[in-house]
Design a protein around this nucleic acid. Structure first.
Lengths: 228, 228
DNA sequence: GGCCCGATTTGACGTCGATCAAACCGGGCC
DNA sequence: GGCCCGGTTTGATCGACGTCAAATCGGGCC
């Protein structure tokens, strides 16, 4: 499973220390955490961990995208979260159980940092900035997962897509252009849609001035999208 | 909005200290927390807080049930979580923002304890058992919200109902009987269904040996339910 | 610039669950 | 015990989305 595995070098330490999780750590906690990190590169589609395995570590993503998902008895998959550069994942198991509760898979070539849960538990015990960072990250993930439930239950496919576009729109009026950082099938999964449904949602947004060319999405009028 | 408001008496302190959140606190932190609690009783349908209001406090539920939900632009509601006795809610805002992100409403007569966020932040700073309790609770809520997303995306209404029944089934084989602790419309909301859909799900489970009489649900064979 | 393959789109269809309206039930009350 | 009312069930209908299959696109590579 491991393609390359080494301690964090200067560039990687710098990337990691800029993440939301580590930005507010005390210098000493940050140093200890970075010293404990193992950096790994994995090819697209590689499995990082599987549901049910003992949860020894959590991860921070340096580059690429990772899919957290669960599989039903009949083999269908549902994405729980898509992680991008700077995100951490499986941190909910630091104090939440000893077994992974979902699968993690590289959606493309990724580079990630691995942290031993037990080490971090000890660090949190000694340094309150670590606990605070964990609590802030957990809260953030909880709130966005709640958003996800509400979105699924209240909004149709075109509304969810409009919502997605609006949240990554630089300006909040006039025209705009967005480039998706990943394949549309990944976006479909994160919105809880089949790829075909995402495609149809985009085409139903054409009447609202949205044009799609590959990964580039042109929005005629941001205000109009808000009305959907 | 406040019907009755006082400091926790002996019985209430005892109830609170048995909750998952407070069970593992150090004696001194527990005492300080209980001293800071305000107990309130509210009638059914009362609003506890509204989305958008400044988040000054989080809550622990002593008795009754509370509905956390959001409302769409066109007035439809989606439940995010149903809290029961011993649950705490809105704790995701201790380190997660300064505004309530959903509405909280008493589903029936409730009694609840109110804790000032700022007080608890200070307590957590000084006593690591408090941070640990917060992290454990956040992790728990995050994991169950993830379960909720996956359930919505992978399971049909009868499957979700079967799932619900199985998780509160005392035994794991043979016949069993369950009494719902709340109205069916509340259960419908927590499963992400309209009340009519819940009713139809129950009636489709009749062929699997499930009978419903008011709030009492008889399960002919628990094993059979697992097959759904 | 053209080729090729996997990703995306389009079409046709079926199923699930929301919605509205009407009938029904059960539990609290007198 | 009977009445009443809110909660629940049932029926009919509809729209949204999943699935399968076939056509098309786009981006990387030579």
């Amino acid at each position: 499973m491991l393609d390359r595995n080494h301690r964090a070098n200067h560039r990687e330490r710098s990337l990691l220390s800029k993440t939301g999780f580590m930005r507010a750590l005390s210098p000493s906690a940050l140093a200890r955490l970075l010293d404990s990190a193992h950096i790994t590169a994995l090819p697209a589609r590689a499995t990082i961990f599987r549901e049910g395995e003992p949860a020894m570590a959590f991860y921070a993503l340096l580059s690429g995208y990772v899919r957290l998902y669960r599989v039903s008895r009949d083999g269908r998959q549902a994405d729980i979260r898509i992680c991008g550069p700077g995100d951490i994942f499986a941190e909910c198991l630091i104090y939440g159980g000893d077994i992974y509760r979902f699968n993690a898979q590289a959606a493309e070539n990724v580079s990630l940092a691995r942290f031993d849960m037990q080490d971090v538990r000890e660090l949190a015990e000694q340094d309150p900035t670590v606990s605070k960072a964990i609590m802030a990250t957990l809260s953030d993930h909880l709130l966005s997962t709640m958003d996800c439930v509400v979105n699924d239950r209240l909004h149709t496919a075109p509304q969810r897509v409009a919502d997605y576009l609006l949240t990554r729109c630089p300006s909040d009026n006039g025209p705009a252009s967005i480039r998706l950082p990943y394949q549309k099938s990944l976006l479909a999964g994160m919105l809880g849609l089949a790829p075909e449904a995402l495609s149809r949602a985009f085409s139903s947004l054409r009447r609202t001035g949205v044009t799609v060319r590959g990964r580039v999405i042109q929005i005629g009028d941001v205000e109009a999208l808000k009305e959907i």
